[in-house]
Amino acid sequence: MLKEQLTRFSTRKLSVRMPYSAQIRFFLLPYLFGTLILVIIPAVATALIAFTDYKAVGLPTFVGLANFRQLMGSALVRLSLRNSVIYLLLAVPLRLLGALTLALLLQHRRRFFGLYRAAVYIPTVIPEAAYALLWLWIFNPVYGPLNLFLGWLGLPAPAWLTEPTTARLAIVILSLFQIGEGFVVLLAGLQNIPRSFYESAKVDGANSWQSFWQITLPLLSPWLMLLTFRDLIMSLQNTFTPSFMITYGGPYYATTFAPLLIYELAFDYFELGLAAALLILTYVLLGLIVMGIINIVGLGGSADEA
């Protein structure tokens, strides 16, 4: 009898007496612990070893800014940083403009528009290895579909991947088809703008061009800002697979972007300290671009020009 009461008491205590707020902490535990081990600690450690000489074995030795000096002295590193910046300044605005245009054209809740939207997202789900191979074939200068198509139109056929300028352009072009994420975010942003705003603008005699500049763009600008920052970071990262699988950095290092060089330094030469320093240099550069953008448009993004 007493024993039964005791066990009942103790199970109650275990299952019910723990306050709800404490139970909730357990829900967050796996995510926070996993992120700490797999993301935060590696990222912080990388930042620290940038100031050391570390070759994967033994202990890192502190060398101050020597890694950065060595990197900046290398023509290849400077070229890779320049390639990365050129790529970002071309690809990110075009990707955002593409996503915005498509979202504006396909936002309607009418028959077939759901299909058009799904089609825009499809290239984004193609696995990157398959996507890289596909474009390697599309850009084939002799019998790739792109040049055959240009020939059919009577246009000149560029050498694409075998010529530095067009090879850089090719990596930009193939990135323009995988814009599903920005497209979906901007569609959601457009849906959040109340219909009544447009209706009252119409009453005031605004045409659709004016209501785009006065209503759509200002209300969309926080989304556009967020996408710009995320796209700057992710676009640079996403050059890795194309430059690894399609061109391997060539021709004449024209598509050697920073991530490819970081990979080579770390996993081919085991120069982890140098690789980490290059990573930091890349993000300093990204930070400068972000600050430039904030200077030009302002953080709230009051983008109305009219």
Binding site: L38, A43, A45, T46, A275, A276
Partner: peptide, 14 residues
């Protein structure tokens, strides 16, 4: 906003 490349090196160690 944390890019993949920044965890490549040390995730390997972990």
């Amino acid at each position: 906003m944390v890019p993949g490349a920044s965890v490549w090196l040390f995730r390997f160690q972990i």
